[in-house]
Amino acid sequence: MPALFFNIIKLLYLLMLFLFLWQLARAIRSHVGSNPGAQTEGTAAELVVLTGDSETERVRIRPQGHVIGRSPDADIRISDPYSSEFHTRVGIQDGQVVVHDLGSTNGTYVNGRRVTSPTSVSRGDTVQIGKTILEIR
């Protein structure tokens, strides 16, 4: 049965390739997703989801930032039909909270004005993504 034997070896090898890719893809999923262990002190600014369909959330902004969007892999997920999968990144740069639109379709608005380049915001400012309003506190 050499033909059958070779066939089995061939399929096993292909299986090995896909097992490898599957492991990788799983790792990438968690890489894109949130990273809860990495909270550090620093600016104690918080990001509060005020309106929209998502349950109201309140997170302390961590230095490496949060990606906000509709994707299940976004750090802060908002179920807003007008939001892009990965819409905006809110992070801290030189001690300031910076809002950074990630090339979203419908844009990110800070205090009602559309922003296209990284914009620093301070407490009390609002960030609008689709119909969802977030406030920096």
Binding site: A25, H31, V67, R89
Partner: peptide, 21 residues
């Protein structure tokens, strides 16, 4: 499998770009 490998590599690369400050 090869194409998937390239896709993942490109996804990770662009991920690095999006996250850079």
């Amino acid at each position: 499998a090869v194409l998937a490998g390239f896709s993942l590599l490109v996804a990770v690369g662009f991920g690095v770009a999006i996250r850079s400050r």
